[in-house]
Design a protein around this nucleic acid. Structure first.
Lengths: 335, 335
DNA sequence: TTGAAAGCGCTAACAG
DNA sequence: CTGTTAGCGCTTTCAA
C-alpha cells in the first residue's frame, strides 16, 4: 500500500500538503491539488483505514454476534444488517456464539478492544437459559452501544428490535379457529428460547379464550428426533385438525408427515408455521407461513445502531424498542 | 478504554515501562510488574487493537466475501471459516456480494485499505458468467493473498479449496446404474455456476459410458418455478426411475413431487442430491445426499490463508489446490 | 499557499 | 531496571 509519505516524497512537497490536497482543502493551490490527485490516482492511493481509525477514535465497524449462522432466519437478519451497514460505509465483523454463553462473552470481550464501534446481537440459547446479563452491561458501560434483536435480554437497557411473537401465534391460532378447527396443537423445537415461550403463550391465550379443550403441546429439544416425535404425536392424537408450529422445521415435517399418514392437507388438517418463503416450498402442499421480515429486522437494527453512533451526545438519546410486525402469508396448507 | 498512558501516569512510571511490564519483559523488576499488572487488571486494560495493527502492519483480520449468505452450504463454509479463524486469534469481516460482480469488486477494493490481511472468497455468479478476474489479480499483486473456495477462477494464481464435483455426480450416477435404473435424469437450478457444470459433466460421463440412452437434463434458472417445472418434467417423462439433483432444493422437491404423483420412492424412482444432513429431513422418505463437508472446506481455507499470512517469505510458498472429497450418504430415497 | 509539529496508542531500539 | 525517543499513517493546528 502506498502512503502519503511516499507521495509527498515523489512530489517534493510535505505530507500535510498531500493530505490537504486529497481532501480538497482550500488552503492548497489548484495546480498542486491537481498534481497530487493525479499521482494518487496513478498509484491507486487509498487512505489507510487503521491509521484513520486510530486518529479519529472510531472504526466504522460493527460487531455482530449471532447464535447460529445456519439458522435461516438469523442468516437473513445478518444479510439485512450487512446491506444496511455497507450502505452507510460500515463494515461488519461477525462472530458466531454457537449458542454458547462462554463464546458470546469472549467475542464481546475480544471486540471491545477498539475493533468495533458497537454491537448488534441476539442472545445465545445458553445465555437465555442462565439469564446472565452482566457482560452486556459491562460492554455498554465501557461506551460501546448494543442493539439486541429477536432474542433479547429485557433487563438490559439498550435498543431492541423484536417481533410480535405473542400476537403472531395468537392471530394464527384464531385463524385456524375461524376455519372451524376443533383440535389445534402447538409444536415447537425452540422451547428454551424467549421467542419460543412467547409463541406458546400466544397460542395458549387464543385457545383458552375460545375453546374448552386443553392446549395440546408437543415440545422437542432435539431437531434430530422431530420426524419420529411428530409421527407418533399424530398417531396418538387422531383428532388433531390444526397445527401451529413455532419453527419452520416443525412445520415442514408436520405437513409432510400428515400427508404421509394419509391425511389430506388442508382438508383434514391445517398447518401454519413460522418460516420464510423459500422454506415454504419444501412441503407439498406448500406451507402457510408467519413471516418475520428478517431482513427488515436486520436493517432496522443497523440503522438504530448507526444513528446512535453518529449522534453527538448519544447518551441523551432514549433507548427504544421497535416491534416489527409479522405477516401471515396464506398458502396451500390452510383453507 | 483505558490506555497505557493513563496507567503510567497513575503509577508514576513511564509508558514503556508499563508496556514492557505487561508483556512480561525481563527488563522490568518483579515488583514493578506486579504493581502494573494489578492496576491493569483493576481497570480491565486491553491493548488497543487499532494501535497494534498500525504498529505491526497487520490486522489479524480476514476478509470473507461470499455470494449468498442464505445458501445453506455457503453459510456453513462461513461457519467453518469463523471457527478456524477465531481459533487462531483472527477476526473475520464478512461481505456479501449478493452474486453481483460490482459488489464483489467494491468489497475487495474497500477492504484492501488496510482493513484485512487477506481474503477468503467464492465467486459471484455474475463474475463466473462474465469471466472477469482482473480485480483478483490486482488484489494479489498489492500483497493481499486470496484463498478461493468452491466457485473458483482457475486462471487466477492463488490457493484454492474445491470439491470433487465431477467425481461426485459420476459416482452417484454409477450408484443408480448399479440399482439397475434405466432412465436417470439430471436436475439442476445452478446451471450457470462452474460447479453446476462440473456436476452435469460427471453425470453425462457416467451415462454415456454405461448406457445407450441420451442424457436427460432439466435445467432451471429460477428457484421459484422449480416445483412446476419438476412436476411437468415428471409427467412428460414417465419412464424416469432415477434423479441426480445438483442442488438440494431440486432434490427435495423431486422426492416430494414424485410421492405426490403417486410414485413410490425409492421403489419406482431413486433420488440423490447434493445437500446437507439437515435438509435431508425435509422430504419423506428422507433424502440420500452427497455431502460436501462445508465446514471442513471453510476450516481448510482459513488454515491455508493463515499459514500463508504467518509465513516469513510467503511469496516463495507455492500455491496449492486442495480437493475435499464428498461422501455419498445413503438414506431412504435410494435402494 | 505551504510546511512543521503534535498526537492518536502502542512497541522497541537505545540510552542511562 | 527504567526512561527517552522514534515511528507506524493520518489529520489538524499553528507558524511561516
Amino acid at each position: 500500500m502506498i502512503t502519503l509519505k511516499q507521495l509527498a516524497k515523489e512530489l517534493n512537497v510535505s505530507i500535510s500538503t498531500v493530505s490537504k490536497a486529497l481532501n480538497n482543502s482550500d488552503e492548497i493551490g489548484k495546480e498542486t491539488i491537481k498534481r497530487v490527485k493525479e499521482l494518487a490516482e496513478f498509484y491507486n492511493y487509498k487512505p489507510n483505514k487503521v491509521a484513520l481509525s486510530l486518529k479519529q477514535n472510531k472504526t466504522k465497524t460493527i460487531g455482530v454476534i449471532i447464535p447460529d449462522i445456519l439458522n435461516y432466519y438469523l442468516a437473513k437478519v445478518l444479510f439485512g444488517i450487512e446491506r444496511e451497514a455497507s450502505e452507510y460505509g460500515y463494515n461488519i465483523i461477525t462472530c458466531i456464539s454457537n449458542e454458547s454463553l462462554e463464546k458470546e462473552k469472549e467475542s464481546l470481550q475480544l471486540l471491545a478492544n477498539g475493533s468495533v464501534d458497537g454491537f448488534i446481537l441476539s442472545l445465545a440459547k445458553e445465555t437465555q437459559i442462565k439469564g446472565e446479563i452482566a457482560h452486556f452491561n459491562r460492554t455498554i458501560e465501557s461506551g460501546l452501544p448494543i442493539v439486541m434483536f429477536d432474542r433479547v435480554a429485557h433487563d438490559v437497557i439498550c435498543d431492541k428490535v423484536i417481533v410480535d411473537d405473542f400476537e403472531a401465534t395468537y392471530n394464527a391460532t384464531k385463524n385456524l379457529l375461524a376455519e372451524k378447527r376443533k383440535q389445534i396443537a402447538f409444536i415447537s423445537s425452540i422451547d428454551s428460547l424467549s421467542v419460543g415461550k412467547l409463541r406458546e403463550r400466544g397460542y395458549i391465550k387464543a385457545i383458552s379464550e375460545t375453546t374448552t379443550h386443553q392446549p395440546l403441546l408437543l415440545k422437542m429439544s432435539n431437531k434430530k428426533e422431530c420426524s419420529k416425535k411428530i409421527k407418533s404425536f399424530f398417531k396418538k392424537n387422531k383428532t388433531i385438525d390444526g397445527i401451529i408450529a413455532a419453527d419452520s422445521a416443525s412445520g415442514i415435517i408436520s405437513v409432510n408427515t400428515a400427508v404421509n399418514l394419509g391425511l389430506s392437507v388442508p382438508k383434514n388438517i391445517s398447518v401454519i408455521a413460522f418460516g420464510s418463503k423459500s422454506v415454504s416450498y419444501h412441503s407439498i402442499p406448500q406451507l402457510t407461513t408467519i413471516r418475520q421480515h428478517a431482513k427488515k429486522i436486520g436493517s432496522i437494527a443497523a440503522q438504530q445502531l448507526i444513528k446512535r453512533l453518529e449522534l453527538k451526545n448519544a447518551e441523551k438519546m432514549e433507548v427504544t424498542t421497535k416491534i416489527v410486525k409479522t405477516s401471515l402469508v396464506k398458502s396451500k396448507s390452510t383453507l
